[in-house]
Design a binder for these strands. Structure first.
Length: 475
RNA sequence: GGCGCCAUAGCCAAGCGGUAAGGCACGGGUCUGCAAAACCCUGAUCGGCGGUUCGAAUCCGCCUGGCGCCUCCA
């Protein structure tokens, strides 16, 4: 269902302001998200980025846009070669394996697959063409089998990261390669070294440098102009800065990307989480515990541009919150008719309408998901309050349906927890039936024993007015 | 050294000029055989000091404490 039209505003790293979102083609969004260099398994930082851009994409689609979402794999790089050599395997086998893991993890995280996933190694032709074009235009020069981009030839270099060339130079932490015209020039093509994979090129055998593959791929798959170009904020410099320089110098027009969107980084404790710091948490570990949906909610509860402080408690807190949303969104949730608890007698249809308005207002404003999520919780509380007061399903339905709908827009799965009990279901039902008899006979010790033992097995039992219900713990 | 960002209740986290969303935890209740879940109640004046303003968590300055980028990184 498409919501009523509203103006979407997006923060653009380039202008450092929120801008009204207007696409190149009406109703269509060209989105390029920097994927990964697959040299190791994904961590939750990748998970955050995947989730953030999945939410942005879902919301734009919800708003009626058709989104062409391209996500690349830079499957040739120093680290890939280093690891493959260390393990004595073919770099291709390594990247194939990691890429298939990536796809599996994307799916388990509940992120929609991209429209297409180009790979650097399969785009060498376009990459070489682009490099040749840059040389012709004087923006690049070959040196002994390498090719470098001449940073000083691109007057607006630094506009994305808001840096001055001379400030960068004064940073003086760049290895000085005497063969380069300028220390800041970066490699477009790297001459082959012993033991490395290589491709033929006008400059001899070699391989693409780091940034050029994204320029070539975004150009190839999004017609040389993109609406949204995204990635983690650690990519702003040098990766995206270099990408702009290459693409705009080559294409001869700017901007090559209209909205630069960057997500905040995951922190563990006070520090940024990264492979090099060794403080990373593998995405796989969270997924295997069945906490993928909780992770998504945790990401949503913070703003996408702000750093996300990750902790085990934070993840568990999100899981608890998610359970509350699930209960509220469950059409078969038990209704209490206990005395002493009164419903608010609210107009839930009106609440649903108001919630819808607030939700879209928040998401339209640079994807303010924390507020959108708070709307979900407000709905949940109202629903539970009415149910606690004995309201029937029909009374609660407008709010319940709205909650499920809005959660769905964010990709939050609030469908009732599926039983992980496998074939044990009927036996558990049987046990609870027996326990019911015991309770009727006030055999509390035995009935409590059954409940405790089931709990130890990961099955929680709850007694409600309508009888006992059970649910298996996820994971 | 350069550029930039952030400091909001126990933890996480919105708000960005009109007297503090939401989540989790804690405590007190209701319900329950007990429990669980749910519901109700309870908690902050926004790092510090100045300034601008009728009015500031929100703007400016200084200070203190963190972080990020400048090198591979989502």
């Amino acid at each position: 269902m498409t919501a009523p039209a509203g103006t979407i505003r997006i923060y653009n790293t380039l202008s450092r302001r929120k801008e009204t979102f207007e696409t190149i083609d009406p109703g269509k969004v060209r989105m390029y998200v920097c994927g990964v260099t697959p040299y190791d398994s994904a961590h939750i930082g990748h998970g955050m980025s995947m989730t953030v851009f999945d939410i942005i994409r879902r919301y734009l689609e919800h708003r009626g846009y058709e989104v062409r979402h391209i996500q690349n794999f830079t499957d040739i790089d120093d680290k890939i070669i280093a690891r493959a050599n260390r393990e004595g395997i073919d770099p291709n086998d390594l990247t194939e394996d990691l890429i298939s893991q990536w796809h599996a993890e994307t799916a388990e995280l509940g992120a929609l697959p991209a429209s297409y996933y180009p790979r650097a190694t399969q785009e060498v032709g376009p990459i070489i063409e682009m490099i040749e074009g840059l040389i012709e235009k004087g923006h690049a020069y070959p040196v002994g089998g390498d090719v470098y981009f001449r940073v000083r030839s691109f007057p607006t270099y630094g506009k994305l990261s808001h840096r001055d060339l001379d400030d960068l130079f004064s940073g003086a932490r760049i290895e000085v390669d005497e063969r380069k015209d300028d220390p800041l020039d970066f490699a477009l093509w790297k001459a082959v070294k012993p033991g490395e994979p290589s491709w033929e090129s006008p400059w001899g055998p070699g391989r693409p440098g780091w940034h050029i593959e994204c320029s070539a791929m975004s150009s190839t798959y999004l017609d040389g102009m993109v609406d949204i170009h995204g990635g983690g904020s650690d990519l702003i410099f040098p990766h995206h800065e270099n990408e702009i320089a290459q693409s705009e110098a080559f294409l001869g027009h700017e901007p090559f990307a209209r909205y630069w969107v960057h997500n905040g980084l995951v922190k563990v404790g006070a520090d940024k989480m990264s492979k090099s710091l060794g403080n990373f948490v593998r995405l796989r570990d969270i997924l295997d515990r069945g906490l993928g949906p909780a992770f998504r909610l945790m990401v949503l509860q913070g703003h996408y541009r702000a750093p996300l402080t990750y902790s085990e408690e934070g993840l568990i807190a999100a899981e608890r919150g998610l359970e509350r949303l699930r209960l509220a969104a469950d059409p078969d949730a038990p209704v209490s008719d206990a005395d002493g608890i009164e419903g608010g007698g609210e107009d839930l249809a009106a609440l649903a309408a108001e919630s819808d308005r607030r939700f879209h207002e928040a998401m339209d404003d640079d994807f303010n998901s924390p507020i959108a999520v708070s709307v979900l919780f407000d709905l949940a509380r109202a629903i539970n309050r009415e149910r606690a007061g004995g309201a029937d399903g029909a009374t609660v339905e407008p709010a319940r349906a709205k909650l499920a709908e809005l959660a769905g827009v964010l990709g939050v799965d609030v469908t009732p927890a599926e039983s992980d009990a496998g074939n044990a279901g009927p036996f558990i039902d049987l046990l609870l039936k027996v326990r019911g008899e015991l309770r009727a006979a006030k055999q509390w010790a035995l009935s409590d024993l059954i409940r405790d033992e089931l709990a130890a097995l990961g099955v929680s039992v709850e007694d409600t007015a309508g009888g006992a219900t059970w649910s298996a713990k996820r994971g």
